[in-house]
Design a protein around this nucleic acid. Structure first.
Lengths: 227, 227
DNA sequence: CGGGTTCTTGACTATCTTCAACGAAAGTGG
DNA sequence: CCACTTTCGTTGAAGATAGTCAAGAACCCG
């Protein structure tokens, strides 16, 4: 359900893809490709099978909110009144499975697929509620820690005993996702690095040195017993 | 779709209730009654037919996010993995129409109802995306102005030529909905009153003296030509 | 290798929060 | 019905968090 909710480290069950019957073959999109814009008519839903998508909304004056980053297993493109309400593009080369919008709207063709798409929509609602909590109530440190925890949980890999996570998005993307500025995101990451909670292997790769500490920080507890 | 999105004043079509077939008779709940808690098993959905509900989530340390205020025509209680992910209680005496959760989950019994509930879920997703924009990117003035615009559009009445709106929720509720503190909400309302954009008839009743100015403020434009 | 973008860091500022006091409104019990 | 108590709302002063502006460093791309 997108990168929004935080549970604990490494507990999310591995992605289960929607049944592939009734779907077209996977299609490839390269980094930067736009899938749809806000206001476009919705013709199909997309399930990410590899890569990462970015969903954004713009304000007239240029301010931007990143609504979600969509990872494999996520479904994007849910319509409202037949229209898209976000822009969507690929952050990296990705592959997608396309579903006709009718598969969501009536269960006649494939009842199982219909149910799975409905469940995906409901999961998205719940995930967005977590995101509300983060945007509305959390400090910059809690936001960044939450973001790293969620991403690590979702797509982290273990390297020499520590969780490691790729951040294919820019600092500006992270900032607009968390309701911060790029400077604050950068400073907060530096802070976490100096406290030895994380290590920044390179700009787009973070190693989590103290996963439980990161988790504590993400829910507003104090940093202590740092090594 | 809840009180989240902002369009322009008085343009939202009046509520269309879900078809009443397959529904039980309306039931009454009095102010303060809790409909469900986070973690409860979802057994039914509720359509508000009169009154106002409040959906909230709590953090361990007591911080609270008001997810939505639900007005007549809104449907609450969408499950994720069979569970509720918010608390829900009535802000004022309300009436509700109950739907079995199976009406959402399979369209076998009543396909039309099934579709309407699905559409309600999709509208909720789109509405929450607007709320993201507000929580993540807007200033306190823009947030409060947006809130008043949306509420006025949704449930305002005209009195002596001006839109007027009731605020049945407390300042703390508004603050937790907008990601502010009660003090900031109070100060911002006072500011709008002193600029003569609104008048506060009493704590829970606001008269909008300059609707177009309020709308401009809600999207980040400067206040000027004030009378 | 060079040029442009992105990221980081610093100094300063603004916005919002916190803490505190007071006033108004609402609920309670005699 | 009134006095009392408690909650809720407003306002002020001070402080903290995050934003803005600016410069330099790192990274990416051709």
């Amino acid at each position: 359900m997108y990168v929004t909710s935080l549970s604990t480290l490494r507990t999310t069950p591995k992605l289960e893809l929607v049944s592939s019957r009734s779907a077209t073959a996977d299609s490839r999109v390269s980094s930067g490709t736009n899938l749809y814009y806000e206001g476009d008519t919705v013709e199909r839903l997309f399930e990410v099978t590899s890569g990462v998508l970015r969903l954004t909304r713009l304000l007239e004056d240029g301010r931007r909110q990143v609504i979600a980053f969509a990872y494999p297993g996520d479904i994007v493109g849910f319509p409202c009144d037949g229209l898209h309400h976000t822009d969507c593009d690929a952050l990296v080369d990705s592959t997608l499975r396309r579903f006709s919008i009718t598969a969501l709207e009536d269960g006649l063709g494939d009842p199982d697929l219909h149910k799975e798409l409905l469940q995906a929509a409901l999961r998205e609602i719940a995930g967005m509620q977590d995101h509300f909590m983060m945007l509305g109530q959390k400090s910059s440190l809690e936001k960044v820690a939450s973001f790293l925890c969620t991403l690590t949980d979702r797509v982290g890999v273990f390297t020499s005993g520590y969780p490691q996570v790729e951040l294919p998005m820019s600092r500006a993307d992270i900032a607009d996702f968390l309701g911060l500025t790029t400077e604050t995101v950068s400073r907060t990451l530096t802070h976490l690095r100096k406290e030895n909670v994380i290590a920044i292997k390179n700009v787009h790769t973070v190693l989590v040195r103290q996963p439980e500490e990161l988790l504590r920080l993400s829910v507003g507890e104090e940093l202590d017993l740092a090594s």
